[in-house]
Amino acid sequence: ALRETGVIEKLLTSYGFIQCSERQARLFFHCSQYNGNLQDLKVGDDVEFEVSSDRRTGKPIAVKLVKIK
């Protein structure tokens, strides 16, 4: 799958939103999709991810998040 990059724009307890670098979009992500310690993730962090689609709504979502050092 194609990896994309973006910036954490909003972060809540169990989910957040990424502002994409490659496209004009804000993508939802669930915190279970982040492969690191959530305490280390904060607004403004650069992340890399794959784009999938929500099974219920069909909308694009970010999965398999990795923080870019």
Rank of each mutant, 00 (worst) to 15 (best):
29 F>E: 00
59 K>V: 06
46 D>K: 14
15 Y>D: 05
38 L>S: 15
59 K>G: 12
3 R>Y: 03
53 S>G: 13
58 G>F: 06
64 K>M: 11
49 F>W: 01
27 L>T: 02
40 D>S: 09
46 D>W: 08
54 D>R: 08
58 G>A: 11
64 K>D: 15
36 G>V: 06
43 V>S: 06
64 K>H: 11
27 L>M: 09
28 F>H: 15
8 I>G: 00
34 Y>A: 04
33 Q>V: 11
19 Q>N: 14
45 D>R: 01
25 A>L: 12
45 D>E: 07
41 L>K: 00
14 S>N: 03
22 E>G: 14
20 C>K: 15
63 V>I: 10
14 S>C: 04
42 K>G: 07
26 R>Q: 15
14 S>L: 04
39 Q>L: 07
40 D>N: 10
13 T>G: 03
40 D>W: 03
29 F>L: 01
58 G>T: 08
42 K>A: 11
19 Q>F: 09
45 D>F: 02
4 E>F: 07
16 G>Q: 00
12 L>W: 04
40 D>H: 05
31 C>E: 14
31 C>I: 02
2 L>P: 02
3 R>K: 08
24 Q>M: 14
3 R>I: 03
55 R>L: 10
33 Q>F: 13
21 S>K: 10
48 E>W: 02
4 E>S: 15
67 K>M: 03
21 S>P: 07
36 G>M: 05
50 E>M: 07
35 N>V: 11
36 G>Y: 09
10 K>S: 12
57 T>F: 07
50 E>R: 07
8 I>R: 00
41 L>G: 00
62 A>M: 01
20 C>T: 12
35 N>G: 03
10 K>R: 11
63 V>Y: 04
57 T>N: 15
21 S>N: 15
59 K>H: 13
8 I>P: 00
28 F>Y: 13
16 G>D: 02
29 F>W: 02
11 L>F: 14
58 G>E: 09
47 V>H: 00
23 R>N: 03
65 L>V: 11
23 R>A: 06
34 Y>R: 07
34 Y>Q: 11
37 N>P: 14
9 E>W: 04
50 E>C: 07
58 G>L: 06
54 D>L: 15
56 R>S: 11
7 V>N: 10
47 V>K: 01
48 E>K: 11
31 C>K: 11
11 L>T: 08
20 C>P: 10
6 G>N: 00
63 V>F: 08
45 D>C: 07
4 E>N: 11
47 V>F: 01
37 N>D: 02
68 I>L: 05
2 L>T: 15
43 V>A: 13
68 I>Q: 13
40 D>C: 10
10 K>F: 02
16 G>C: 01
51 V>W: 11
15 Y>N: 04
20 C>M: 15
9 E>T: 15
3 R>E: 01
62 A>Q: 01
65 L>M: 11
55 R>A: 05
5 T>D: 02
24 Q>F: 07
63 V>S: 13
47 V>C: 11
31 C>Y: 09
23 R>E: 04
20 C>F: 11
64 K>C: 08
62 A>K: 01
15 Y>R: 10
48 E>F: 04
9 E>D: 08
30 H>E: 15
40 D>K: 04
17 F>L: 03
56 R>N: 02
34 Y>K: 15
59 K>E: 13
32 S>L: 08
3 R>D: 01
54 D>C: 12
40 D>F: 06
33 Q>K: 14
61 I>Y: 08
12 L>M: 04
35 N>C: 13
13 T>R: 04
47 V>T: 02
13 T>S: 05
36 G>R: 08
67 K>C: 14
55 R>H: 08
23 R>V: 06
48 E>S: 09
39 Q>V: 13
51 V>Y: 12
9 E>M: 07
68 I>F: 14
49 F>T: 00
13 T>C: 01
36 G>N: 11
60 P>H: 15
3 R>G: 02
42 K>P: 00
12 L>I: 12
44 G>R: 06
49 F>V: 01
22 E>F: 02
21 S>E: 13
62 A>W: 01
64 K>N: 12
22 E>P: 03
5 T>H: 03
53 S>F: 13
69 K>S: 13
45 D>T: 12
36 G>K: 08
30 H>Q: 12
51 V>P: 15
57 T>M: 12
8 I>A: 01
55 R>Q: 14
64 K>E: 14
7 V>K: 15
39 Q>M: 10
54 D>H: 09
29 F>T: 01
44 G>C: 05
39 Q>I: 15
29 F>Q: 00
21 S>D: 14
33 Q>W: 15
20 C>Q: 06
67 K>G: 06
3 R>W: 02
43 V>F: 02
1 A>Y: 02
11 L>Q: 04
6 G>E: 00
20 C>S: 13
45 D>N: 10
50 E>P: 00
